[in-house]
Design a protein around this nucleic acid. Sequence first.
DNA 1: GGTTAGGGTTGG
Length: 806
Amino acid sequence: MPVHTVKDVNDLDTKVPPHLQHVSISNLKLTSDCLHRSVKGKVVQKGPVVSCRQREYLLKAVIQGEDPQQRSASQHASINVIFFGTLAKDFSQSVSQGDIILLAGFTISKSPSEQTDKLHPCHLEMSGPDACVHVCPSAGSSSSGSTTSEPKYTYIPLSELKPRSIVNVYGVVTFFKQPFPTKGTDYCSTLKITDQSNAKVGCTIFSEKLEDHPKIFRVGDIIRLHRVKAQMFNGSMTLLTTLGWSTITFDGMIDSPVEPRTSSRTFHFDEADKHTVEALRQWAASQSLLTSESTVPLSSVQPKMYFDLTCQLLSKACMDSRCILLKVWDGTECGHSLLNVAAAPDALEGESTCFQDQQNMTANILVYDNHLEVARMLQPGMFLRLYNLHAVPQTPPGQPPDVPQHLVFHLHGGTSYGRGLRSIPSDSPDLQSLKRVLESHAEKQAAEAEVNDGTLLDVWYTPPETVGEADTEDFYTVQTCDHSLQQVSLAHVKTSIPPVVCHVQARVKSYQPQKLYQCLKLFCPQCKTVKDVPDDESIAQVFEEALRSSNQPCSEHWAVTSSADSHQLDRTVTMHMSCDMVLDNTHLQMIFLQGKPDAHTLQHFTVQFTQKPFTRLLLIYKTGGLFFIGVTLDEMCIISGSHKNLVPVCSGEDRRMRLLDLSAPFLFCGDKRYYGCEHCSQSSFVDPVVSGVDVWDEQNVAKALGVQLMQYMLLLQFELEDETGTLDALLWEDAERFFNVSSAETSANQELQDRVQNIMDRIHPSGSSMAERPWLALCLSVYTVEENGRTQVCYQITNTETRGNL
DNA sequence: GGTTAGGGTTGG
């Protein structure tokens, strides 16, 4: 370990190897012989560990000579020390501000910051095998560095910045440029921010990594900067990144989620930060900071104007070494004719824009010079924002000059007025309305695509093999949608821009899960959780646990409790009835029972209940919910065989009635079991709402109990194959249609389970070769899913039914 | 480790 800790400050001196001579900080010179010197001082500043290109990690600290006389006599009693590599990390962990340290094995260089920090003209560098630190923790600091409390950040109002101070600030962005390359090693972001103090401060951010630059999408975004330096420039206060700076940004719209945009995995963010962002949003709204410069839809663009455009990329083409063509749309129709820029077909990447061209919805954007670097990274389907785009009127090439001019868009070189472009994550709050518009167009496009468009037939993919007559009669699939789309290849599907619907013909190369009972899942429509159906063993455990903990009968204010001796059962059973039942003998009543008979006696017991003297209960059996306390899963299965709507409950220590853990079914209904979502259901049992319900189905029972009902669904993944490649497609939303079964029924019905198995055996007979498997006509939905901030394209089999003999 | 830029329209 290169950092050694000692308990007593005097030990520091005894630790020094004898060949080292102690030298005071103020006496250090560039020419000093470092090999035989040690330096002692107090840590007065300690920076964070930051990554640097050459040596991976680096940490800067300032140490001050101990001798007070020395300090007053010399300005140079404090010196910068830079620790490299693992030493930087060790130092960060083991040393705190205020500790006394002794350094050996350093090298001396000229300090580049002498002018600004007024410290020693030299600095010390600690790296390599000889570098060695001894530390004596100060009384206040804890002995192990790991227990030091998390740093608390204070934020300075922008009007109170002092030159040369290193500060943390929040601000609303009033101007910004996307990062551009400098003449040095870094990219530079230029921005201007303001806050409630009304000061406007320019910021210059340098980083060689693009992903470290602030992710600013529009004026009004909120930015937080840590460890930036205040400086005067041209009579104005500015902020400049320093060593160890960091940033996060937020959407500026009131009510949008306060989610930090950052590439950093570790950043500090707490409730106080959330409040700061919310307060800044409110303030910005009151100052109309956001509204002034929102982006302009294509429908409002006028010739010669400069504007910001939010759009989706359809295709792109490289025109020459200084120009890339982007074809984009925002779902609105331009009021002026749009120029269609032709590109060499082999240079064009992405989807055909025919549909959009016809509607005067395709904007052709020529991107020049410094913007090519960003443009090259763009993929068709991405959402983009272009800043300071120029609408240029132009006479279409080859047309007489009296033809009305068409609009083409130029993203000129340079960065004036924030000119630039960037992709916007598709889950951004201000993209959602655009996405809805595009989706509605995509549906229209699918509907309008005509099968009988003979001119297209030749270019469209035709399947390598037509479906044989025998196959057709025997077993086949049909598309049940009215899309009337041309059939395309799987390769074509993979280049399509979501959202879109395609028709394909493919065989199944493989599918998951192989054990078909595993394809039955539970799905929460609220939080979209998908989980496996638990097996009986784990359900039985939940029941047994509930039994063990339910010693006392429940006492509920909404229920009347009475005990009844059953001569047949030879035991006392406590019943809980809803008050409604006592007051008003209607079919809306519920009964809650507590008892712990064994399975055999329960059978008698339930029979007894349907006979006198319990005639009133007969009504409830027919339509009502029935609640039991303290039964095992086996007993529950026996009772539910003959009765509808059984809700297993237990009694808590407070004698309140509780539902069992929601990993077990909350409702038994004949053979069917229903589950509640563990995230979206109310965690505590509340008074059941029993009035106004005519039919006690699973929906209404769930509602009365505050349970979010989970839906059964079938989920399979197919690996599809045709001559052009393979593609993984899910089957779930339309799985019931595909198999012609109900998922809920399938969960409790062997016949239906066999049906699913048989269909899969036809699609993919065990031991069959690809050639033996049937071609399936499938409708595929291509859509995107956001996962961990990444957009993923997914394929799903929809609108398809299996037909034929099984 | 200490530079770079420090907002303010364009060529196509």
